[in-house]
């Protein structure tokens, strides 16, 4: 079957029972897939070994995902606590206060940076 034929079948308007049986068989034949050899044995081995449905590959990804959310949540909580403590201590917000240089005047900063 040439490309245009299978493309036509796949994209043809929906009709009940998908056209002729021959067309159906053609699509099924071309789009046939299978698992690797010994698939039955692998399934039974997993059933008998009692490995949970979400296997090891997923356990690693799952723990990554969980760690990511925990770190993100902790970081967000730390930022909120920092902002709250600044506000309670200083009574206002400013960029300097966030940087921790709210009570240093510009001359002191120049001295600090140049050493003079």
């Amino acid at each position: 079957m040439k490309n245009p034929d299978i493309f036509r079948l796949i994209t043809s308007p929906p009709v009940e029972k998908q056209g002729s049986g021959e067309d159906e068989a053609n699509i099924k034949d071309i789009m046939s897939f299978d698992f690797s050899e010994g698939f039955e044995d692998k399934v039974l081995a997993r059933i008998n070994s009692g490995i949970e449905v979400y296997g090891r590959t997923y356990a690693i990804e799952k723990s990554f995902s969980l760690a990511f959310y925990r770190i993100a949540f902790t970081a967000a909580a730390a930022v909120v606590i920092l902002l709250l403590s600044i506000y309670l201590k200083e009574g206002s917000f400013s960029f300097d206060l966030l940087l921790g240089i709210g009570d240093i005047d510009s001359e002191s900063i120049v001295c600090l940076l140049t050493g003079n």
Binding site: S36, V43, I47, Y54
Partner: peptide, 13 residues
């Protein structure tokens, strides 16, 4: 896909 295929049958079982 192979893993998911196995899981389908494990869940069925």
């Amino acid at each position: 896909s192979e893993d998911i295929g196995q899981e389908v049958f494990i869940k069925l079982y």
